[in-house]
């Protein structure tokens, strides 16, 4: 296995080659890199690969220390549809 074939995002199986090519072609931020490749958009919500995706994007862009590079959105854990919207009076 070469570096290019190495998986970076384990959930969506996005490779190092795909990410570095995309970053080079578009000079993009982490967020754009994520949207273009699906890296960080899988089951774990990017908890595992976010620092790696960030590192690739930061080669082309400057870090803004006040902005979380890959935004978090609810739910931060996968939820079964059946479990959403249930109101319990605890």
């Amino acid at each position: 296995m070469t570096d290019r074939d190495m998986i970076v995002c384990r959930c969506e199986e996005v490779t190092y080659g795909e990410l570095t090519d995309t970053a080079e072609k578009f000079g993009c931020t982490s967020r754009e890199l994520k949207l273009r490749t699906r890296a960080g958009m899988g089951y774990c919500g990017g908890r595992t690969c976010r620092s790696l995706v960030d590192a690739i994007a930061l080669a082309a862009t400057e870090r803004d220390v006040t902005q979380i590079t890959l935004k978090y959105q609810p739910p931060v854990r996968p939820v079964h549809f059946g479990d959403l919207g249930v109101i319990t009076n605890d």
Binding site: R10, C11, E13, Y43, C44, R47, T48, P78, H80
Partner: peptide
Amino acid sequence: KPRGIYCNIGHCFECRVEVDGIQG
């Protein structure tokens, strides 16, 4: 491709299986 445990504390979801019919 085969996968096993990775983080072992619930963060990475690599170990997700179906238990008594419930997925993930």
